[in-house]
Design a protein around this nucleic acid. Structure first.
Lengths: 129, 129
DNA sequence: CTGAATCCCTGCCGATACTG
DNA sequence: CAGTATCGGCAGGGATTCAG
């Protein structure tokens, strides 16, 4: 009775053998998710794409301060993680469109959960330096 | 109609000014949450505490491979983030108990969301190297 | 327009040793 | 038992430059 936080029979933590890992391994789904979100600017890139697909320069325009290197790093990483889909428009001015995959769309609730927790955080409320 | 993923009127993304940040700033609740979870071993430490309070050595025993430095780093960081509470038992053998704060307990659903997404991830399913 | 290549600097993490 | 001190290696990230 002391802790039933994760004690529900959902396809999650308690019964799954991967929940017993004693080391940070890629086998743990939580690590997989955090690995996908890892890196500065990553969530902001996702947030832009949650609002609809964008071109490379569109993203760069929306996220000033983000260098080319980091942006292309993030995009490649997110494509690799199955979050984004890259579509090249082979025209005279080469265009590339980035959009969320269905799996990437499902990050919406995840980010929402992170948001809700963070918004409720004492650090966010009391403005602790 | 192209994207209603975050289009619900929950206390989250669309209407909140903090959702429009063009830079990774601590003002964004998502950043707050990810900052709390940041660092290797962090989620595993939290997982151990989700199963009930532990002593310092209890955590170290549960998480072999985790050095003292990193463990105390993580604990201090999580206390700072309002996730953990440290309670010193000033007895003859000095004991220190770590337990989740109510706010820390609320990380349960967050980790669940991360788990669910990661478990559904192509990288986890198809075992992509 | 869409990146890739390079350089440098910082911060994280692990190992070891030491203290109250 | 519960940490802190110190050091070194390595990866992440920013600015700039170059290429397709």
């Amino acid at each position: 009775m002391a802790h039933q936080t994760v004690g529900r029979p959902r396809p999650g933590l308690p019964d799954d053998p991967r929940a017993e890992v004693a080391e940070p391994t890629p086998a743990c789904p939580v690590e997989v998710a955090l690995a996908a979100l890892r890196g500065r600017w990553t969530t902001l890139v996702i947030r832009e794409l949650l609002g609809g697909e964008h071109s490379y320069s569109g993203l760069r325009a929306a996220l000033r301060g983000l260098s080319d290197k980091v942006l292309s790093d993030r995009l490649a990483h997110l494509v690799e993680a199955g979050v984004l889909e890259r579509r090249r428009e082979t025209g005279v001015p080469p265009r590339t469109r980035y959009r969320l995959t269905p799996h990437g769309e499902r990050l919406g609730p995840v980010l929402q959960a992170l948001w809700d927790w963070g918004a409720d955080s004492p650090a966010a409320v009391s403005g602790r330096a």
